[in-house]
């Protein structure tokens, strides 16, 4: 969808639980929303960090997992038909002459909306980078944090660092095309699925793949082209592995990213907001959930839900200027029940 243009009432950055529930509160007021998220699915931290872990402090839900919470929120907002833009990062924000915002993603998708809601939690999930000197110079052509096209690695000598599913899956999937694969991991044990570990060990036993119990030490090469990866082994000291490519798989970490350049006041990477509207220092840009800060702030999902409800009231005033907002309950309002698709 590169280059696609969209228009909506509200664009929400972040499809975690708070961003999802904001769709509900906006929807009740008749406002449409688009959501942008760097992950490939909804749920944010709930989906990425603890899909299987229990959550006990959602009101009236004694226990649910991060994934269950996400699934239930998706069901709750279904009637409002939000549009999701997954695996995209909100990159640039411009104010248009008509006071609307134009948000452009790193994939070139542009969304025009009167209101921007930042529900980005701890920031964008981005690959964790090893602390290696000169890493940046190799990132253009030799060090990758994801595999997009297997064919790009044909005939390469590849070092894969890490012990999770990404590391092992790619070791196995790239094995048929690579000239040589060396898996580097700090221990002789893996958190990856046992079947993948077994398949890797069989290849290693056959001499078709290398496995070093070691840690990355340094990168060597010239002009951005890697020639070897030096690893440090407890038993064998420093070892140079001839390599064209390094694929480090150490999971994801959260970075604020381009939001830092949106022109908002920031306090220690958080967005200060008022507690009436949860609006940032820039009018019609709101911040809800873990990304915001105010006196007494608690980083709880339930706080983010409350913040979304109050934000929606203020967003309505921007999106429907001059219209009176009627306060209604879902229990009794036929208008709200129609919006929810239950009447």
């Amino acid at each position: 969808m590169t280059g696609a243009q969209h228009e909506t009432d509200v664009v929400i950055i972040g499809a975690g639980p708070v961003g999802l529930f904001a769709v509900f509160e906006l929807g009740l007021l008749g406002l449409k929303a688009h959501l942008i998220d760097i992950l490939d699915r909804p749920g944010g931290q709930c989906a990425e960090l603890y899909p299987e872990k229990p959550i006990y402090d959602i009101p009236a839900v004694p226990m649910c997992t991060g994934q269950e919470l996400t699934d239930r929120l998706m069901e709750q907002i279904k009637a409002f038909e939000p549009t999701f833009h997954f695996q995209e990062m909100a990159e640039r924000l411009e104010k248009l002459p008509d006071d609307r915002w134009k948000l452009t993603t790193d994939q070139g998708v542009a969304i025009t909306a009167r209101v921007v809601v930042i529900a980005a939690g701890g920031g964008s999930f981005v690959p964790k980078k090893p602390h290696l000197e000169g890493l940046e110079q190799f990132e253009a052509g030799s060090v990758f944090y994801a595999v997009r096209k297997i064919d790009a690695f044909r005939g390469k000598r590849i070092v894969i660092a890490g012990g999770g599913d990404s590391a092992l899956d790619w070791a196995l999937n790239l094995h048929p095309v690579a000239e040589r694969i060396t898996v580097v991991h700090h221990r002789d044990g893996f958190r990856a699925a046992p079947a993948s570990v077994e398949a890797m060990r069989m290849l290693v036993d056959k001499g078709a793949m290398d496995f070093k119990i070691a840690q990355l030490d340094s990168l060597h090469g010239a002009d951005g082209a890697l020639s070897s990866v030096r690893v440090k082994s407890k038993t064998d000291g420093l070892i140079d592995i001839p390599a064209d490519t390094l694929l480090p798989f150490f999971g994801l970490t959260m970075k604020l990213g381009p939001i830092a350049d949106f022109g908002l006041n920031l306090h220690e990477n958080l967005i200060p907001v008022d507690t009436e509207k949860f609006e940032s220092s820039v009018s019609s840009i709101f911040a809800i959930g873990d990304i915001n800060t105010y006196p007494g702030k608690l980083k709880l999902i339930l706080s983010g839900f409350h913040e979304g409800a109050l934000m929606a009231q203020a967003a309505f005033a921007y999106c429907r200027p001059g219209e009176r907002l009627r306060f209604q309950y879902t229990t009794s309002s036929s208008d709200l029940q129609k919006k929810l698709g239950v009447r």
Partner: peptide
């Protein structure tokens, strides 16, 4: 914890 430390750097 052992599994999770697989995601740490400089272990």
């Amino acid at each position: 914890e052992e599994d999770m430390i697989d995601l740490a750097l400089e272990v």
